[in-house]
Amino acid sequence: MRLRYVHGQYEYLQQHEKAITEPEKRGYKLNEAFSNNNPIHVELGCGKGKFLRETALKNPGINYFGFEKSVKVAYRCAKCMFEEDPDNYFIVYSNGDILTEVFEPNSIERIYLNFSDPWPKPSHYKRRLTHRNFLEVYRKVLREGGEIHMKTDNNDLFEYSLQELKADGWEILMCTRDLHGSEFVKDNVMTEYEERFVQQGKKINKLAARRP
């Protein structure tokens, strides 16, 4: 469903206590957003924030940042705050390709790629978040032993991602092509898309890979 433009949504994000807008334009390092040294987890493409908030609620000792490049979606994410919302996350209105600009090197413990755009056209393959160019970015900001966790319903994107990760030297820690029919479903937090796909009977692919 196409989201409707809401007047003043960018201004709303600028003033929202849980949102950070375009930190790369201010030379701001997101490592400074929390007054602690807890591990940092980043979700690229947080949508309306279901996964981000529920995961933050379950893990109060981890700092979370949910990146969202669509102002319409980031606005709705910020509007979806619930009672007793966890205080260990921020919504970041920006593109995920600026990670090296807004995080210190070797400072992120985990990156989540949940149901990313598959960019199916051959001419668009460099836009996929598991393309070698993005993997190089992740290498720089992930700490030693840092991980990528990926979920998708798109089989072609999943196979492509596996090939890219292996070719680039990443260690595959786990891999399943039917998450909800596997042992790995324990403690799984579903996204909005995932809930819909599971209801439709689609199988969900998941992998976890460790930085070379």
Rank of each mutant, 00 (worst) to 15 (best):
residue 16 H to Q: 10
residue 158 F to T: 08
residue 42 V to D: 02
residue 198 V to S: 10
residue 19 A to K: 02
residue 98 I to T: 14
residue 18 K to M: 08
residue 63 N to F: 06
residue 22 E to T: 11
residue 197 F to T: 05
residue 30 L to N: 11
residue 139 R to E: 14
residue 158 F to V: 05
residue 202 K to G: 02
residue 77 C to A: 11
residue 112 Y to F: 15
residue 5 Y to D: 13
residue 70 S to G: 03
residue 198 V to F: 05
residue 156 D to A: 13
residue 160 Y to H: 13
residue 54 E to G: 07
residue 155 N to R: 13
residue 62 I to Y: 09
residue 36 N to V: 08
residue 200 Q to A: 15
residue 44 L to F: 04
residue 46 C to K: 03
residue 134 F to R: 00
residue 171 E to G: 01
residue 82 F to A: 12
residue 29 K to R: 14
residue 11 E to K: 12
residue 153 D to M: 09
residue 39 P to G: 11
residue 134 F to G: 01
residue 173 L to K: 14
residue 115 F to N: 02
residue 92 V to G: 10
residue 118 P to A: 07
residue 57 L to H: 12
residue 18 K to N: 11
residue 55 T to Y: 06
residue 102 V to D: 07
residue 57 L to V: 01
residue 25 K to P: 04
residue 12 Y to C: 02
residue 122 P to T: 06
residue 180 H to C: 09
residue 161 S to C: 08
residue 169 G to A: 04
residue 154 N to Q: 06
residue 183 E to M: 10
residue 154 N to G: 00
residue 141 V to D: 06
residue 34 F to D: 09
residue 117 D to H: 06
residue 67 F to W: 02
residue 181 G to Y: 09
residue 24 E to V: 11
residue 76 R to L: 15
residue 5 Y to C: 00
residue 200 Q to H: 09
residue 203 K to R: 14
residue 47 G to M: 01
residue 76 R to E: 09
residue 148 I to C: 03
residue 93 Y to N: 01
residue 18 K to L: 12
residue 189 V to G: 05
residue 192 E to A: 06
residue 82 F to G: 14
residue 83 E to P: 00
residue 67 F to T: 02
residue 189 V to W: 08
residue 46 C to T: 15
residue 142 L to H: 13
residue 102 V to C: 09
residue 60 P to E: 05
residue 155 N to C: 01
residue 189 V to D: 05
residue 179 L to D: 11
residue 150 M to L: 14
residue 121 K to N: 08
residue 103 F to M: 09
residue 191 T to K: 04
residue 115 F to I: 04
residue 87 D to W: 00
residue 146 G to M: 03
residue 157 L to M: 12
residue 12 Y to N: 04
residue 44 L to K: 01
residue 185 V to D: 14
residue 104 E to L: 12
residue 116 S to C: 12
residue 45 G to D: 10
residue 76 R to Y: 15
residue 101 E to R: 12
residue 138 Y to W: 07
residue 181 G to R: 08
residue 49 G to E: 00
residue 102 V to W: 03
residue 122 P to V: 06
residue 12 Y to E: 07
residue 50 K to D: 13
residue 203 K to A: 11
residue 171 E to D: 14
residue 119 W to Q: 03
residue 26 R to C: 04
residue 122 P to R: 07
residue 113 L to C: 08
residue 172 I to F: 09
residue 15 Q to D: 13
residue 136 E to P: 00
residue 96 G to Y: 02
residue 205 N to K: 05
residue 27 G to C: 11
residue 26 R to P: 00
residue 210 R to G: 10
residue 46 C to M: 13
residue 10 Y to Q: 11
residue 154 N to M: 00
residue 210 R to E: 15
residue 152 T to I: 05
residue 135 L to D: 08
residue 72 K to V: 02
residue 49 G to P: 09
residue 68 E to M: 06
residue 15 Q to C: 02
residue 141 V to Q: 05
residue 9 Q to R: 14
residue 156 D to Y: 11
residue 113 L to R: 06
residue 207 L to R: 07
residue 110 R to A: 10
residue 117 D to M: 08
residue 80 C to P: 00
residue 108 I to A: 01
residue 52 L to I: 01
residue 199 Q to M: 11
residue 125 Y to W: 12
residue 50 K to E: 15
residue 209 A to H: 10
residue 141 V to N: 06
residue 74 A to E: 00
residue 58 K to F: 03
